[in-house]
Nucleic acid binder design. Structure first.
Lengths: 242, 242
DNA sequence: TGCGCCTTTCGGTGGGCGCCGAAGTGCGGC
DNA sequence: GCCGCACTTCGGCGCCCACCGAAAGGCGCA
């Protein structure tokens, strides 16, 4: 009936090719690392993933060719980052389906404290995640700014809230204003989309939170704790206990 | 530095393993076929994918072991279907990222007419898609039953509408009531989630639409055209023109 | 009970690909 | 202008895996 079976169904072939980009442990590790939304050099990724520089170079070539990464050459460095928010969402969606038992149990004091810092707060591409992210999302839901009972959308009061706090929402773009992103550590949704990104950007700009070291972990400042208490009514211990 | 590099990062390993299930053209073709939400036998999938029965049998074993498919043995037949709505959403999400140019251009009159039937209306796992799906979604948005401007959620009026039409919404489940599903043919979102599934189930039960032959294409009946005009104000030609 | 269909198991084959080290290229710094 | 560092290219190795045909297993039907 058919011999070599070259290109039977382009849809299936495209899906397989796309999935193939994720289907390698080293490439998957790179994509997960890049979920912090920042640009990494090839060498950093090689050290992070524990493979030779030549190996990671080939992987990055495939990921760029496949449209998942954007690259920027600066002198002798090659910086790569996730191509756009759609790619970031795809990585999130796939990672969220990974069975929970396949998570790493931290070994040693160093990893435990790094892990708990990540659990407290971190960036997820361009928005806030961890307990910090879910606490903000829950508070917005409690206050009627966000509704999750019939889907996931800002309410009119929520749109107004953004304006009152001084965060500009870019309407009209192709990107949805609000969307749910499943949190790995909390196993509950937090606010993503254009509004989540704007909120995160504002939080850093206003000093509500700062990055811890060079990682994706994020720490709430004293200012941030006070402001979030004022504008969202979040109690201070909500960021610590669960 | 490191020899075998066994299990470096369980998260990355899990992601790679999951993606690996999609990363084969034959398995991808099976998953896309199963997106119609129904159960297929192993033999049907083998013929559809154009490979030997023994080959598809091995693939199904992996997909079941990986949790993507559920199987049911009936006599000498092995029926498989997508494990749950989460898996279906994952397949949709991945398929939606496939570059548009990788779509199959239909060849021959038979494929053209089958393709246009699919474009008019079809099921997408457990909800309606194609022009039928987007027409319903657009009408609900126009009437203020669904809001897409600040996310994607039913409004209070929308919840009430479901009750008035006689569709029971299962609240309280883990599944979101409304969620957007990107349509391949229309390139626009349509209603998915628990509400989309309930609407689709109701539409079939009330004879608003029927399946064409044994495929996933769906045809609106005269009754359905009239009822949708009454309850959503959809003009008849909205299903045909775009 | 025996035949036929659907499915599975098994052995074998070929190709694809992830990995490395070594050599090469280009840029920055001393 | 030379050295060093970041990255890339290349050759080669080894493993994994999709594929098939042949044979075996299980079930329905006559």
């Amino acid at each position: 009936m058919l011999g070599g079976m070259s290109s039977r169904d382009p849809q299936a072939a495209g899906l397989a090719r796309l999935a193939g980009l994720f289907a390698d442990e080293t490439r998957a590790a790179c994509l997960l690392a890049l979920l912090d939304g920042r640009a990494w050099t090839a060498g950093e990724l090689a050290r992070y993933a524990g493979v030779a520089a030549s190996t990671v170079s080939e992987h990055l070539g495939k990921l760029v060719a496949g449209g998942l990464l954007a690259e920027e050459r600066q002198g002798r460095h090659r910086y790569v980052r996730l191509a756009d928010a759609r790619v970031a969402q795809l990585v999130e969606d796939l990672a969220a389906q990974v069975p929970a038992e396949a998570r790493r149990a931290p070994r040693g004091l160093r990893e435990v404290s790094a892990g708990s810092a990540m659990a407290r707060g971190r960036t997820c591409y361009d928005h806030l995640a961890g307990r910090l992210g879910t606490a903000v999302t829950d508070a917005m839901t409690r206050r009627g700014l966000l509704r999750q009972d019939t889907g996931f959308a800002l309410t009119d009061a929520g749109v107004e809230w953004f304006g009152r706090v001084g965060i500009e929402l870019a309407r009209g773009g192709r990107r949805p204003l609000a969307r749910a992103c499943l949190d790995w550590t909390e196993r509950r949704p937090h606010l993503a989309g254009a509004a989540g990104a704007a909120l995160c950007r504002h939080a850093f700009a206003e000093g509500w939170c700062v990055r811890i070291g060079s990682g994706r972990a994020v720490k709430l400042t004293a200012v941030g704790e006070r402001v979030l208490g004022e504008v969202l009514g979040i109690e201070a211990d909500e960021f610590r206990t669960r």
